[in-house]
Simulated scan of single mutants.
Amino acid sequence: MHSTAFNSQEPLVQAVRQGDAAAITRLLADGADANAPDGRGFTPLVLAAYEGHLEATRALLAGGADPNQSVGGGNTVLMGIAFKGHSALAQLLLDHGAELNARNAEGSTALMFAVLFGRNEFLDLLLRAGADATLRDHNGHSARDLARQKGNDYALTVLPE
């Protein structure tokens, strides 16, 4: 059985999945919660950004979505989209206050994810924005260490020693 809060969020979740920015704006104006997770624990912003819906992401941010809210293991939206390399979305999130050096439960950052998944354009964007490449995860690995482990030669040329 779903809670009332979940059921009231369902139209927003559906609009997000469809990338329907106009419907998102309307639903938020009618009282939908831009930060309430769906039944699997994903916020509307996580869903929109992960699917690459730029205008839907923009509508959610304009409607009060928190770019730093974390889900599963402390991953932020910026970390989540590093997997897919959505650089335009990353810039939008950063422009709306996404924490560049936020760390998840393992101490990993979006920069580390970009290195791990070979998303070098995303990596460049994060470095230009001032990401701290010297941070280490809970295993003691820096982004450069991860680049070496994954054979990401490009990252090795742009990350500091």
Rank of each mutant, 00 (worst) to 15 (best):
H2I: 04
H2R: 07
T4E: 09
A5K: 12
A5N: 07
A5T: 08
A5E: 13
F6S: 03
F6M: 06
N7W: 03
E10P: 04
P11V: 06
V13F: 11
Q14T: 12
Q14I: 11
Q14Y: 02
A15S: 09
V16K: 08
V16H: 09
V16W: 06
Q18G: 06
Q18K: 08
D20F: 08
A21C: 04
A22R: 00
A23C: 00
T25R: 13
T25F: 00
A29M: 04
D30R: 11
D33Y: 09
N35D: 13
N35M: 01
N35T: 12
N35H: 07
F42C: 03
F42N: 13
F42Y: 15
F42I: 07
T43A: 03
L45Q: 15
L45T: 15
L47K: 11
Y50K: 05
E51C: 02
G52A: 10
L54R: 13
L54P: 04
A56H: 11
T57K: 12
T57S: 15
R58A: 15
R58K: 15
A59I: 15
A59C: 13
A59P: 12
L60F: 12
L61N: 05
A62G: 09
G64C: 13
G64N: 07
A65D: 12
D66S: 15
P67K: 13
Q69G: 02
Q69D: 06
S70C: 07
S70T: 15
G72H: 09
G74A: 08
G74H: 14
N75K: 14
M79P: 09
M79G: 12
M79R: 12
M79C: 11
M79T: 10
M79N: 12
I81H: 10
I81N: 11
I81Q: 12
A82L: 06
A82M: 12
F83K: 05
G85F: 09
H86W: 13
S87G: 04
S87M: 05
S87V: 15
A88P: 07
A90L: 13
A90T: 03
Q91Y: 05
Q91M: 10
Q91G: 14
L92D: 10
L94E: 07
L94T: 05
L94A: 09
L94W: 09
L94H: 09
H96C: 13
G97Y: 15
A98L: 14
L100C: 05
L100K: 14
L100Y: 14
L100D: 12
A102C: 07
A102I: 15
R103W: 01
N104L: 01
G107I: 00
L111H: 01
M112H: 03
F113P: 03
V115H: 01
L116W: 00
L116I: 06
G118E: 02
G118N: 05
N120S: 08
N120I: 01
N120T: 03
E121Q: 08
F122K: 09
L123C: 03
L126M: 13
R128T: 13
A133I: 03
T134L: 09
T134I: 02
R136T: 04
R136G: 02
D137T: 01
H138Q: 05
H138F: 07
N139V: 02
G140P: 06
R144S: 04
L146A: 04
A147E: 01
R148F: 01
Q149G: 02
Q149P: 00
K150W: 04
D153P: 00
D153Q: 04
D153V: 00
Y154A: 00
Y154Q: 01
A155G: 02
L156W: 00
T157E: 02
L159P: 06
E161T: 06
